[in-house]
Computed example of a mutant assay.
Amino acid sequence: MADQAVRRSPGRRAAKGNRFYFAVSACSVIAVLLLWWIASSNEWVNPLFLPPPSEVWSAFTDIVREGYKGSTLLAHIGASLKRISVALLLVFAIAVPLGILCGRIRLLSAVFDPFVEFYRALPPLAYYSLLVLWFGIQDTSKIILLFLSGFAPMFIAAVYSARRIPVDRINGARSLGASGFRLYAFVIFPSCLPDLLTGLRTAVGVTYATLVAAEMVAAVSGIGWMVLDASKYLRSDIIYAVIIIMGIIAILIDSAIRLLIRKVSPWIEQ
């Protein structure tokens, strides 16, 4: 019984600590909302720049009920998530195997690394006009822009994780007969998976931040486009409402990835 109590106590302390930090986070959010309400009520800031929370809530409910520019809110969210999902699937399917191979084969790394290092520091808008010229103004150019924004962090995470695999693990697998595809599929890839999921979390954040740029040109749907379109008419209430929606979606996506990381590698704190 004493041993069970000892084993349970760390878990209880961790749960109590999590509840405490959650309460602190909730209080921080409430404090910011309260400050926002006080500032807007006393008109410390021009309502054009900081609309009252009531107006933002009213704009949100209007968008939920009536949609925006002929499409429902779910349709706009779905259009943006579709672009991001396709881009991230391509990122994981291309950047991960290429990065792992570059991490294990220095010659291959020498071929691809200069190009990745060159373009990853460029702002997305710097080469988006080229993508539009090459691939048109439809979703193809937008998906490619999102793909390029997420490729570099995913590729770098794959290279780093492949290089830090212990040599003894590789030699042990080879001594048991693993080689070629089996070595990569059953030893190297599982060893890289925790770092890959962390890299995916970074890639999702970078890709999501590029969403507005991707929906700037000839788009008529998407939450990024909603922000840009509302800014043309100085509808700051809609801008704030959509930005909050974007933030909530980003938190949900990040929470899902963090949960997946904890399932795959529970020893890593997230």
Rank of each mutant, 00 (worst) to 15 (best):
R163T: 07
V6F: 12
I105N: 15
I84K: 02
R12V: 14
I253N: 05
R235V: 02
A230I: 05
I144Q: 07
P97L: 06
I238Y: 09
V132T: 13
S9V: 14
D62W: 05
M154V: 05
L133A: 15
G177S: 03
W44A: 03
V227Y: 01
V204Q: 03
L260Y: 00
V220E: 14
F118E: 00
V167E: 15
F135Q: 01
L35N: 01
D62T: 10
F147S: 06
L131A: 06
V64D: 03
I268H: 10
A26N: 03
C27L: 15
R104P: 10
L107D: 11
E215N: 06
L34Q: 00
L74F: 14
Q138L: 13
L50M: 08
K142M: 06
A93I: 10
L73V: 09
A26H: 00
R13Y: 11
T202D: 04
D168K: 10
L101Y: 11
W37Y: 10
L252S: 07
Q4M: 11
S236E: 02
R106H: 12
R164N: 15
G222I: 05
S54V: 13
I94E: 00
Y128T: 10
Y184L: 12
D113L: 13
D195Q: 10
R169K: 12
S25I: 10
A213D: 07
P114L: 05
R19M: 11
Y233F: 12
S71H: 09
Y240T: 04
I105C: 10
R19D: 07
S141L: 08
K69A: 11
L107N: 12
I245T: 01
P51C: 00
A218W: 08
F60M: 11
T140K: 13
I84N: 10
G205W: 07
V264H: 00
L183H: 05
I248N: 02
V159H: 02
R12P: 02
R106K: 14
A95P: 04
R8L: 13
L122H: 02
V212T: 13
V86I: 15
G103E: 05
G180L: 05
S231F: 04
S191R: 03
S175W: 00
A79R: 11
E55V: 02
I38L: 13
F112E: 06
G172L: 12
W44D: 00
L200P: 03
K69L: 14
D113S: 09
I30H: 00
P194N: 04
L193M: 14
I239E: 01
R13I: 13
V242W: 03
E215H: 06
V29P: 01
I144D: 04
D62H: 10
L197S: 02
V6P: 00
T210M: 08
L122C: 07
A209L: 13
I239M: 12
